[in-house]
Write a protein that binds this DNA or RNA. Structure first.
Lengths: 200, 200
DNA sequence: TTCTTTGTTCTCCAATTGTTCTCCATGCTA
DNA sequence: TAGCATGGAGAACAATTGGAGAACAAAGAA
C-alpha cells in the first residue's frame, strides 16, 4: 500500500520528532506543524497510517507512536495463536519479540502462541511460544505448522508416506494420528525453538 | 509501557539527582523542582513509575530509589547443567546468553541446562535451558533448584509441609516424591522461564 | 509526650486530547 | 457529465490526564 502525500508528510514528521523527543506529539502539535486547523482531518490520515501498520495508537491521550522498526531488526513478529483444528488466530497488531539469535534459524522466523495440549508429550505446553521458520516442505519427524484443507492450522509431527500421503501426529496419547492425501495438507513452517515464561 | 511526559520528567529528574546526591529527593523537593503544588498529584506519577519497574519505593520516609538495570547488556551467565541427584556441573567457562527481558524476572538470573527426565510431564525436557532466579525461599508449587544435603542439586516442584519438612516432587510418574526435613534442603533458585532449541 | 515532616489516599475539577460526525472543495477518471 | 478519491473545516463528544487540596498515617525530632 502506498501513502498519500499527507500521510507521508505526517509519517516523516513523526520520524523527525521521534529523534528529538521521547514522547510522541499530540494531534494538536501535529496540526500546527502541518498547518492544519482541524484535528478531525488529521485523524483520518492517522487512521490510514495505523491501518498501514506504520504507527500504533496509544491508550488514552498519549498520542501515537511509530512502530519500532529498529526493534524489528533484532526481533521477530508474534503473529498470533495456533490451536489444533482452527485457523491461525492473528493478533490485531503483530507484536515484535526480541529473540536471541541462537534460538532462530538462518531464515526470517515468526512466533506463535500454542493453544491446546496436542503436543504435550514432547514438552510443548498450552501457552508456550513457538518460533517457526516458514517453509513449504519438511522432513520426516520434524514438527511443523500444517494447514489442512486450507482452513485448519495445526502444530504436529510430520510423517511422509511412500504413497505421497502424509500423517500428522499429535504427541498426545489421547489423539490418534491423522492421515491425509498430500494435496490436503500444506506445510507452512517448521518448529525451530520454544520459549516459555513461568508466572512471576 | 511508555511513560507520559510528566513521568518521563520525574524519571529524568531522579537520574540527575542521583548523580549529585546519595539521598533520593523527597516528594516536596520533587514538587518544587517540577512546579507542582500538590504532593498528591506527584504521588500518582511516582506510582506509575513504580509499576513500570523503573523505581522502587523505600520503607519509611526515605524517598524513592532508581532501579539499576546494567546487568542486561551482556546477557545472563550459563552456569552449567543440572541433573537430578548430582551437584550442578559447572561449565569450565560460563557462557553468556543474550536472553530477552520478557523471559527474565526483575532480579539477576542465570541459566542451567537440564539433564534427565524428571520434569518431563510439565514440559521440561532433557537438554532444555532453564532460566533461574536466585532465591532462598519459594512458595508451594513453584519449581525450584534445590540442594539436598549440600551435595545433590535437583530441579523439582516444591511443597512445604506444616511440620517444616519439604517435599520435592518430580513431574514424572516413574519417580516418587521425596520428603526431607527442612534442614536437609536448601532452595537455591526458582524457575522463571525456559528455552528450547530444536535441531536445525 | 507533642510537633513537624514526609508519604499516602482520597475526592473533586478543569483542560486537553482523541474520536466521530457532517459538510464541502478539488482534481482525476470513466 | 457523474463518480470517486483525496484533503480539509468545524462542531460536538467522551475519555483521560494532570492537578489541587484535604485528610490521614507513620516516622523522626524536640
Amino acid at each position: 500500500m502506498t501513502l498519500t502525500r499527507r500521510q507521508q508528510a505526517i509519517y516523516d514528521y513523526l520520524r523527525e520528532h521521534a529523534e528529538r523527543f521521547t514522547h510522541p506529539p499530540t494531534h494538536d502539535e501535529l496540526c500546527r506543524a502541518l498547518g492544519l486547523s482541524s484535528r478531525g482531518s488529521l485523524h483520518k490520515h492517522i487512521q490510514a497510517l495505523v491501518e498501514a501498520g506504520l504507527v500504533v495508537a496509544q491508550q488514552g491521550r498519549q498520542g501515537i507512536r511509530l512502530v519500532e522498526w529498529e526493534q524489528q531488526d533484532t526481533g521477530i513478529p508474534h503473529l498470533g495463536t495456533i490451536a489444533a483444528g482452527r485457523p491461525i488466530q492473528a493478533l490485531p497488531q503483530p507484536a515484535f519479540l526480541p529473540v536471541p539469535e541462537f534460538l532462530l534459524s538462518r531464515h526470517p522466523c515468526y512466533a506463535l502462541t500454542v493453544k491446546g495440549e496436542s503436543m504435550i508429550e514432547v514438552g510443548i505446553m498450552d501457552g508456550d511460544l513457538v518460533i517457526i521458520e516458514p517453509r513449504d516442505t519438511a522432513r520426516n519427524g520434524e514438527i511443523v505448522v500444517a494447514l489442512i484443507n486450507n482452513e485448519e492450522a495445526t502444530l504436529k509431527r510430520l510423517q511422509n508416506h511412500h504413497d505421497g500421503s502424509v500423517s500428522l501426529i499429535a504427541e498426545n496419547r489421547n489423539m490418534a494420528p491423522l492421515r491425509y492425501p498430500a494435496e490436503q495438507v500444506q506445510i507452512q513452517g517448521v518448529l525451530v525453538s520454544l520459549l516459555r515464561r513461568y508466572q512471576p
